[in-house]
Structure formats: C-alpha cells, structure tokens
Computed example of a mutant assay.
Amino acid sequence: MEWTGAKYADGPTAEVETWIDASPRRVWEIVTDVESMPQMSSELQSANWLDAAGPAVGSAFVGTNSHPALGEWSTTSYVVECDPERVFAWAVQDPDNPTATWRFTLRDRDGGTQLRQWVRMGPGRSGLSQAIDQMPDKEEKIVFVRMREFETAMTATVAAIKQRAESAGDR
C-alpha cells in the first residue's frame, strides 16, 4: 500500500476492490444510499442527507462514527464527484481542505461491476491530528494503524455491498 511509512501531510491513500455479479445500476443504487451505509460499516453509525437532493455534486450528509480508541463524532460530508453508475465521491468537513476524501468507482466489466473504494487522508486536520500532536515521534505508526483500519473496514464494506447487490432480485 502507498501509506507505508507515510506522514499525515503526505495524504496517504488506501484502496480495495471487488467484482460484483450485478449491473453498475444496481451497485450505484447501493453505494449512493448513504443512509443504508451504516449497515455495511463497523465504524459508521448513522448517515443522513441534509437536503432532498440526494447524491449530487454539492449535496451534503452528516455521518456519525464510533471507534473504540477515538470515541464518537459526527462530520458533514460534501459530494464532490457524482457521475451516475461511475463515480461517487465525498469530502469530509471542508470540500476545499477535507479531513478525508472517499470515493467509489464503478466499472462495467464481464457482465457485472468492478467496484473500487478509495480513501485519502487529509490534508485538513482531523481527530487523528490530535493524536499526532500528542505523540509526534509516533506519527508514522499512528497513520499506518489508521490506514490499516481503513483498509480492513473498506474490505468489509465492499464485501457487504457485493452481497447485497448479488442477492437482489433485479441485478
């Protein structure tokens, strides 16, 4: 992974992918349904659109997360890319200086969908920045552990999306 030995300011990334035996249309319905995403995530506890627009560039949603070491927190995320059945991405807190940017990429492949989930940490300060401030000599380890957690969680999320999409009757 690109994040080995990375510092927060490096904007480390993690990425996972899977092939899903369902159409991009069906997978798109799932990845853009942010209110159902907590059912597929161990950290995300709830997510709600702030406006009726739903998945569209500029629309926003609030997500509440929980982590054993970091506690519970809520953030507002802004959709920064929305290309139906292809790309759905959001920036956390500030679209111009996000604490993280998340992206789902869908590609029609072999009668199904290649789904990729990607995250980039920073460049804006996050809760992790506070831990780094307290232990600057451990920054690379702190970033490594968090990126590893992201990778593990994302692997579970795309597996849950795959399961949901493949079990649906309207693939």
Rank of each mutant, 00 (worst) to 15 (best):
M1T: 09
E2F: 11
E2Y: 07
W3R: 00
T4K: 08
G5T: 05
G5K: 09
Y8H: 12
D10I: 02
D10C: 07
G11S: 09
P12Y: 10
T13Q: 11
E15M: 08
E15D: 06
E15Y: 01
E17V: 00
I20C: 08
D21M: 08
A22N: 01
P24V: 11
P24N: 13
R25P: 01
R25G: 04
R25H: 14
R25E: 15
T32S: 09
T32D: 08
E35P: 00
E35C: 02
E35N: 10
E35Q: 14
S36C: 10
M37Q: 15
P38Q: 02
M40T: 00
M40A: 14
S42R: 07
N48V: 10
N48G: 11
A52R: 12
A53Y: 07
G54F: 06
A56V: 14
V57S: 12
G58E: 06
G58N: 08
S59W: 04
S59V: 02
G63E: 03
N65P: 01
S66P: 00
H67C: 02
P68H: 08
L70D: 03
L70V: 02
G71N: 09
E72N: 09
T75I: 07
T76H: 02
S77C: 13
E81I: 06
D83K: 06
P84F: 00
P84W: 00
E85D: 12
E85H: 04
V87D: 11
A89T: 09
A91R: 04
A91H: 04
Q93I: 06
P95M: 14
N97D: 15
P98D: 06
A100F: 12
T105R: 10
R107C: 03
R109G: 05
D110L: 14
G111V: 07
G111K: 07
T113W: 04
L115W: 02
Q117F: 04
V119G: 04
M121E: 05
M121I: 15
M121F: 15
G124F: 10
R125H: 11
R125L: 09
R125S: 12
L128T: 00
S129W: 13
I132Q: 05
D133N: 15
D133F: 09
Q134G: 10
P136S: 11
D137G: 06
E139H: 08
E139I: 01
E140K: 10
R146H: 09
M147I: 04
E149Y: 02
F150G: 02
E151Y: 13
A153W: 01
A153Y: 00
A153C: 04
A153D: 05
M154D: 12
A165Y: 03
E166F: 08
S167M: 06
S167H: 10
S167A: 10
A168Q: 07
G169Y: 07
R171Y: 10
